[in-house]
Nucleic acid binder design. Sequence first.
DNA 1: AAAAGACGCAACCGCGCGTAT
DNA 2: CATACGCGCGGTTGCGTCTTT
Length: 349
Amino acid sequence: MGRHSCCYKQKLRKGLWSPEEDEKLLNHITNYGHGCWSSVPKQAGLQRCGKSCRLRWINYLRPDLKRGTFSQDEENLIIELHSVLGNRWSQIAAQLPGRTDNEIKNLWNSCLKKKLKQKGIDPVTHKPLSEVENGEEDEEKTRNQEKVTEISESTSGSYEKKQSSIVVRAYEPEMEVEGSCSNSNNYMIGNYPIQMSFTSNDNLPNNISNSSTHWFNQTGIKPFDMNSEFTSFLPSSFCYKSSVLDVPSEDVLISSDSFGMKNNMLSSWGLTDCDSSIKENQTEEDEAKWNEYLQNPMIMLQNQESEGLCNQRKAAANLSHVDALETILPHSKQQESSQSYSVAAFGHV
DNA sequence: AAAAGACGCAACCGCGCGTAT
DNA sequence: CATACGCGCGGTTGCGTCTTT
């Protein structure tokens, strides 16, 4: 269509923002809100294009921005989310309150990529570099990237290509669910697949699908210690794909302590048939790490939620897994969106 | 101390999508 | 239905600062 850039329309300032410009923009948005961005510069008395104003506000002037260096927890979360979402910086930023997509993108390109490479992890595939260093490297990266896209956008929890299989058992006070869990792609952290499709052998009640995708990781136990021996991992978090819930992800990322899952089904995914030593080798240190992780403010999104929704969640937290999901589902049904979303829940055995 | 290179960050650019006309 | 426009996103660039030689 050949649309011309807004900056070409007239002679507009470009480059770094002066303190005076910042003040004008801040005052204007504080008093009147931004409304239509294209009209902001005129109303605020700025020789800038609306796009430039928007960017300045989002990345620098917004009052809720967190300043300063990223914490280790934040870096770990970014790596984890990148392994699932790829370069979807805005989606990653949505899980890190006070951080912008630009900031995260810069951190990734300038710092995290290198750190992963130093640990022998390919920053694109999140697999050990040794596995990617062959003639099919590029092809494999493309394949994996496509697969992530497919998984992120799919509305189904089952996938054709299954690499390996283990049995996963979930417990809940009134219910025991057992089924098979298959690695549905090539993504691994350490020696463990982080994305798996789960098929239950049992009939699950109501709206809960027998087949869904769960994204496991080892954050709760070993926060991305790529070089560590794989001895004490338990699947500590997962995402229900849209076959279970259709809710915007930013709405439903719930930490286990706010959701009250410690002793119910969501928190009780355990491995059988995979490596029984995993459970045995879990240490007090792991427990401490887990508790530390629960304190991670990055996943405590309830502070940003509306009071009503927050209370709804808190009410759900007192229910069992199934009841809690049912409590949230009516809310999700209100979201008339064709997109699929995922809900993350963090639990621990 | 000066020059060169590396690094980090802010901002720009182009594109795609959704919506209004 | 086609077109124009605004917005948001991801990739890229440019510049100031820091580190190394």
